[in-house]
Computed example of a mutant assay.
Amino acid sequence: MARTPFRTVLAAAAAVALGLQLSACSSLIAGSPDATYDLTAPSDLPRGGVRRGVLVVAEPVAVAVIDGQRIVVKPNGGQVTYLPKSQWSDRLPKLLQARMIESYENAAWLRSVGRPGDRLSVDYQLVTEVRAFQIDAATGEAVVELTAKITNDKTGKIVAGEVFQARQPLTGAVTGPSATQALDQALKRVLTGLVTWTGQRV
Rank of each mutant, 00 (worst) to 15 (best):
L96K: 09
L96W: 10
Q97C: 08
R99P: 05
R99I: 00
R99V: 14
M100Q: 11
I101W: 03
I101C: 03
I101Y: 00
E102K: 11
E102D: 10
E102G: 03
S103W: 08
S103I: 09
Y104M: 11
Y104K: 00
E105P: 00
N106G: 07
A108R: 15
R111P: 00
R111W: 00
V113M: 11
V113Q: 06
G114R: 02
R115F: 10
P116E: 09
G117Q: 06
G117D: 05
D118W: 11
R119N: 14
L120H: 04
L120E: 03
S121A: 15
V122T: 14
Q125V: 09
L126I: 04
L126W: 03
T128W: 09
E129T: 12
E129Q: 14
V130M: 13
V130W: 05
A132Q: 09
A132G: 03
A132T: 06
A132M: 06
F133K: 02
Q134Y: 11
I135H: 02
I135Q: 06
D136S: 10
A137I: 06
A137H: 08
A138Y: 05
T139V: 10
G140K: 01
A142Q: 05
V143E: 01
V144Q: 14
L146F: 15
L146G: 00
T147S: 12
T147P: 02
T147D: 12
A148Y: 01
A148P: 04
K149A: 11
K149E: 07
K149R: 12
K149V: 15
I150R: 03
T151K: 09
N152Q: 06
N152A: 04
N152F: 00
D153C: 04
K154G: 02
K154D: 08
K154A: 13
K154T: 10
T155R: 05
T155Q: 01
G156T: 07
G156Y: 08
G156N: 05
K157S: 13
